[in-house]
């Protein structure tokens, strides 16, 4: 490592940060990349803009009052019997009026995060498979797992965990 290359690196970083620091506004986006030392943008430092996570517009699926959240047992991805009638209702809706839907799989906080990502997907897949079995076109369904990252309830006991082990149909 030469001192010169170190110096050059530093100078480049310095300029980048100065530019970042001089930028007075931060875009109101959901994801803002930042260099070490600042949260600025304005010099082209990576900035991503994304939606707020909800699907809107005329093409959105209307659940028509049916239950859209389905709960699971710990470390399980098996549909509970009480989930079936609502899901059959959704399947009927989607057969008659095909819409794109998202199945967002979630877990409680116990266990490791990436394993829970996989477990949340397994739950989403279980709901998807049930819908497909009931005649819904599989290409209409996207499963996205959030693992334990988006709990519905923040508590650290079974009453919260039970609410967090879920699939949300959107």
């Amino acid at each position: 490592m030469t001192m010169k290359s170190l110096t050059n690196l530093f100078f480049a970083g310095f300029v980048a940060i100065l530019l970042a620091a001089c930028s007075s506004t931060t875009p109101d986006s959901d994801a803002v990349g930042a260099g070490v030392g600042g949260s600025g943008s304005g010099n082209g430092v990576a900035t991503g803009t994304v939606g707020d996570g909800s699907i809107g517009g005329a093409d959105a699926y209307d659940a028509g009052g049916l239950e859209t959240v389905f709960y699971f047992d710990f470390d399980k991805a098996t549909l509970r019997p009480e989930s079936r009638s609502a899901l059959q209702g959704h399947a009927a809706n989607l057969r008659g009026n095909p819409k794109h839907i998202r199945l967002e799989g979630h877990t409680d906080e116990r266990g490791t995060r990436e394993y829970n990502m996989a477990l949340g997907e397994r739950r989403g897949n279980a709901v998807r498979d049930f819908l497909v079995l009931n005649g819904v076109d599989t290409s209409l369904i996207e499963v996205v797992s959030y693992g334990e990252e988006s709990p519905a309830s923040a508590g650290g006991d079974e009453s919260s965990w039970a609410l967090n082990r879920r699939v949300e149909l959107k």
């Binding site: 690196l9 480049a12 970083g13 980048a16 959901d30 994801a31 990349g33 930042a34 260099g35 070490v36 430092v45 990576a46 991503g48 994304v50 939606g51 996570g53 990502m117 996205v144 797992s145 959030y146 990252e149």
Partner: peptide
Amino acid sequence: VSFETRRPAVFRQRLSDAQR
């Protein structure tokens, strides 16, 4: 991993200039 695209995606990012 970031969900900013509403799905999980893998990103790499340099510390020095935030290039990602």
